[in-house]
């Protein structure tokens, strides 16, 4: 076995040249392409990451806007609710006031109706009492009744102030009204008694008014003395009305 030094040298040169050629035409272009593709991929990934970051920021903005919408909606709802509550309270107050007014009006109407009814019944009762008193008066002794009423008239005159009695006595004419007609003797007797009570001799004119039921009344410009059942019934009716 021997070594061919020429072959050794040629093979060394051959492999060295092959190293250079493959480095020039294979390893370097492919490695450069790998690096370029890697840079492109990294750039693409970076762009995607940037886009993702932008999308996240946009999403955050959207979420923020949504939160603003929600807050605004809550505020609007709260304002609407407050407004509705205020309107409801006002409406309730109005309705309550109106109801109170209607109740007051109804109470007043009821009271008025009651008063009217009471007045009507009082009037009816007075009319009935007058009628009953009139009928009862027809059964009484006319002379005795007239004497009693004359006596009450005289007491009423005497109860008047003296100045009023003197003024009445000085009048030219007084009117004496009776329920039934008096004969001349009775008129003279009444005239004398009244003149004595007044302290003078006034001219007295006698008239008849059946509405008096019973009694004798005296009227003048300065004096008026009511002395009849009609006046008594009217006074009693007023007293009952005030008492009710």
């Amino acid at each position: 076995m021997s070594i061919d030094w020429w072959s050794l040298g040629l093979q060394t040169i051959n492999v060295a040249i092959l190293v250079w050629l493959l480095g020039r035409f294979f390893w370097r272009p492919v490695a450069a392409m790998i690096a370029e593709r890697r840079e492109t991929a990294e750039a693409t990934l970076k762009a995607a990451a940037d886009r993702q970051a932008e999308d996240k920021a946009a999403l955050a903005d959207i979420e923020k806007t949504r939160a603003g919408f929600a807050a605004e909606r809550d505020a609007i709802l709260a304002a609407a609710q407050d407004q509705a509550e205020t309107a409801s309270k006002a409406r309730l107050a109005e309705e309550a006031s109106a109801a109170t007014a209607r109740a007051s009006a109804a109470s007043a109407a009821i009271a008025k109706d009651r008063r009217d009814a009471e007045n009507s019944w009082s009037l009816s009762a007075a009319t009935l009492a007058t009628a009953m008193a009139g009928r009862l008066a027809t059964r009484l002794d006319g002379a005795a009744v007239r004497a009693a009423f004359l006596e009450w008239l005289l007491q009423g005159i005497r109860a008047q102030p003296e100045a009023m009695r003197l003024a009445a006595a000085a009048e030219a004419s007084l009117e004496a009204t009776t329920a039934t007609a008096l004969d001349a003797a009775e008129q003279d007797r009444c005239r004398a008694a009244i003149g004595e009570a007044l302290g003078g001799h006034p001219d007295i004119t006698f008239t008849v008014d059946a509405a008096l039921i019973a009694g004798i009344e005296l009227r003048g410009r300065h004096l008026e003395v009511g002395n009849s059942w009609r006046a008594d019934l009217a006074r009693i009716g007023k007293e009952l009305a005030h008492g009710a």
Binding site: S7, L10, L18, L21
Partner: peptide, 17 residues
């Protein structure tokens, strides 16, 4: 002298390049 190994090496080089 060009041996067989050198010639085959040239062929391999040509093919690879």
């Amino acid at each position: 002298p060009i041996s067989e190994g050198v010639v085959v090496t040239w062929g391999i080089m040509a093919m690879l390049v």
